[in-house]
Design a protein around this nucleic acid. Sequence first.
DNA 1: CAAGTCATCTTGTATATACAAGGTAAATAT
DNA 2: ATATTTACCTTGTATATACAAGATGACTTG
Lengths: 235, 235
Amino acid sequence: MTIPKFAQIKQFIVNNIRSGAWLENQRVASENELAEQFSVSRMTARRALSELTEAGILTRSQGLGTFVASFKSQSSLLEIKNIADEVKARNGNYSCTVLVLESISAVAPIAIALGVEVDSVVYRSVLVHNENEQPLQVEERFVNPALATSYLQQDFTALTPHEYLSSVAPLTEARHTVEAIMPNSEMCQWLNLYHEEPCLQVIRRTWSSSGIVSFARLVSPGSKYRLGGHLTFKK
Amino acid sequence: MTIPKFAQIKQFIVNNIRSGAWLENQRVASENELAEQFSVSRMTARRALSELTEAGILTRSQGLGTFVASFKSQSSLLEIKNIADEVKARNGNYSCTVLVLESISAVAPIAIALGVEVDSVVYRSVLVHNENEQPLQVEERFVNPALATSYLQQDFTALTPHEYLSSVAPLTEARHTVEAIMPNSEMCQWLNLYHEEPCLQVIRRTWSSSGIVSFARLVSPGSKYRLGGHLTFKK
DNA sequence: CAAGTCATCTTGTATATACAAGGTAAATAT
DNA sequence: ATATTTACCTTGTATATACAAGATGACTTG
């Protein structure tokens, strides 16, 4: 028995919840009770309860006790992964084509999103991420030149923009929104779509300690790409 | 100073990372060093480091030390919230209309998704979630009758299907996928769309301890609904 | 009877201590 | 010189103890 004691207690609790034996909002044994049942110290029993609480499986309140969390309270999460990693994970052949790499004058919405002056110069890149030579996602990115001076000199077939930006301006925050859009004709060409079809668009803004670094638009055909996520009591 | 000591240490560390003073993969003071710096016991310093590690902000390895996690390793997460809560959160007027509530014979894809026999009887509901009397999302749901016998007798304008199902068959797991689709004519009618437009579709399958409970399709117009999420070093 | 107090349960914070186990580098033996 | 041992750092697990603070119900007091 090499499994740590606190982990054994966690398993015991999770098993009871997963099996349906303990229902939502039902009370769980107190730290002292668990300590006695498992012949451990209170601090060890406490660790099991605390970690399961942190994981959202239990809820606790001082003076009252510990309870099975209601499923509703758990927010469901979706992961946005790196597309290159995703392709490689399913043994696809990943490649990347650079379509545009330029400096442009920022129109109002771009300037606002990047936190720079309107009509100031910003960098823009458009890449296509391919799986088995078929376009899977278009990445259009606007970059704050003050924070990534030599952006235009990079070879993005070797190093992704995200990786390069992480190295020159360490990221401290990112915000995403996901929506369904209809691609314009330019985007259809980039994605090699004969018939118009709805696309998933992820907007990602990234911050570093010195300000907004970049603003990216990731567009993928609805027929080829989806986001997935799952939520469980495991752990 | 009523802030707990372990929380003060956490703040100190997070501030250093957010400000950019400590870079990715950089080494952080050890438990003993922190304990001395802050005049606390090792266990208290340890708690700060452990909780930040659990939150994905630090990584630790036995024998080596503690390090600032690389931003890349953090998966970006999107939250799928309850739509009624979301509407209420922005002070919208939430309402719900029941369009269909019936038992049908399961065709193959539905039967497979629910884990029941093909052509067996399953329940089906179609609801429209409205914000200020405008359709915001259509929820089409197929339910395993064995696990929610009296599903068809419920009043879903008062209690959402998700809430009802949680009460009769406590959920233990959920899986989601998000994609962009073009709605068919029936869906356009339900969503009150004059012009066809791309929609976000969330597929949600939920499990309880006794099997697959239900299979829901949540469709929202791309122009009215988006998923948001953000990733930060806060906490 | 009603209001306040007290005892006793709960979780929360904090410390001191002990040993286990992983990793590195310097000291030692071959 | 190379290989092994040893010392010393790190994090990981576990215990015993103390007091703080929230919640509840019984008991006491006005």
